[in-house]
């Protein structure tokens, strides 16, 4: 166990040295290196090597962008012609109409799925972040018996694939009658061992003992210190943990697919796959447009909150 903890911690520290949460822009290079590389860059690289590197990187970029590009192009074609040639180029711009049709077809169930996803991921991520930050802060700032044990168990949980808990959770929920209850999706998702790990690291870094001591002298209660001072100083870390939780819940498929059968309670991942596997009962065109729309919220979230997830991702990274 200790080895695993160390690997995780090493990765974290390497990352923090470069892209720490306190350094929001996260452009990387430490100062000395940055000055040096700027001065040397153009002198030391030949045009040929720049060209080769750019071409190879361009090939990678094409590989990563092609499926998303196809999805966008296909969703913009006239309704029903999503798979017409040319595959990778436009045939008019009908995205607006198509999205409107998506949102109104089947009694607007698609919008319902999106709302469910937002609700599950939002509630799960907020509560999960709160629980994780409390536990992580306590692990970083208080010494109590069993602290190492608690932290060890949390780390072990980080390293066990979450999907392995899904079937046992399903068995347990069907025993206690929680099937088809949104709680069956939300309750497991508010437990984030990785969030505890991250917030312990961040609390140790960003909440100085002196501040806590000063607050105590001023007569602030222990719990008050956490909620009024600790949480405020940990805000960037909390945003990161929130994002990670949100993405993980939004992307989850197996758990909601197993515990929620009622279509109107399903998140968008489960709903779309059910359309996809409906053997043509739902036109594939709707699935294509739905897939594009379902990707947009997370893409926007990622683009706008870049500086936060970069810090968090490099600080340990988990699937």
């Amino acid at each position: 166990m200790s080895t695993q903890a160390e690997v995780l911690a090493v990765a974290t520290n390497d990352a923090n040295a470069a892209d720490g949460p306190t350094k929001a822009s996260g452009s990387g290079r430490n100062f000395g290196k940055q000055k040096m590389s700027k001065a040397l860059n153009n002198r030391e690289t030949s045009l040929a090597s720049r060209l080769v590197v750019t071409i190879v990187l361009g090939c990678f970029a094409i590989y990563f962008l092609v499926p998303i590009w196809w999805l966008f192009v296909a969703a913009s074609k006239p309704m029903g012609e999503q798979f017409s040639a040319p595959g990778f180029w436009f045939n008019g711009m009908h995205l607006g109409n198509n999205v409107a049709e998506l949102l109104t077809s089947r009694d607007g169930i698609f919008m319902r799925w999106i709302l469910n996803s937002v609700l599950y991921a939002g509630i799960g991520a907020i509560v999960g972040t709160l629980l994780a930050s409390m536990a992580g802060y306590a692990l970083a700032k208080y010494s109590f018996r069993g602290r190492e044990v608690v932290f060890g168990v949390v780390l072990a949980a980080v390293l066990i694939p979450k999907i392995l808990f899904t079937l046992p959770l399903y068995l347990m929920f069907s025993e206690v009658g929680l099937i088809n209850n949104p709680l069956a999706v939300i309750l497991p998702s508010i437990v984030s061992p990785f969030g505890v790990y991250l917030s312990r690291v961040f609390a140790a870094q960003s909440v100085p003992d002196e501040v806590i001591e000063a607050a105590r002298i001023d007569g602030v209660s222990e719990v008050g210190i956490f909620f009024r001072i600790g949480m405020r100083m940990m805000t960037p870390a909390l945003v990161t943990i929130f994002l990670f939780n949100f993405v993980e819940i939004w992307n989850n498929y197996l758990l909601p697919a197993m515990v929620i059968n009622d279509s109107s309670l399903q998140p968008v991942t489960v709903g779309l796959v059910s359309w996809f596997a409906s053997n043509g009962k739902v036109p594939m065109s709707l699935v294509v447009i739905g897939a594009l729309v379902s990707v947009i919220p997370l893409l926007l979230l990622f683009l706008f909150l870049q500086r936060f997830w970069k810090a968090g991702l490099t600080a340990g990274a988990i699937k």
Partner: peptide, 8 residues
């Protein structure tokens, strides 16, 4: 970017 796209 692909990381922001759910697996399914």
């Amino acid at each position: 970017l692909p990381y922001a796209v759910p697996g399914v």
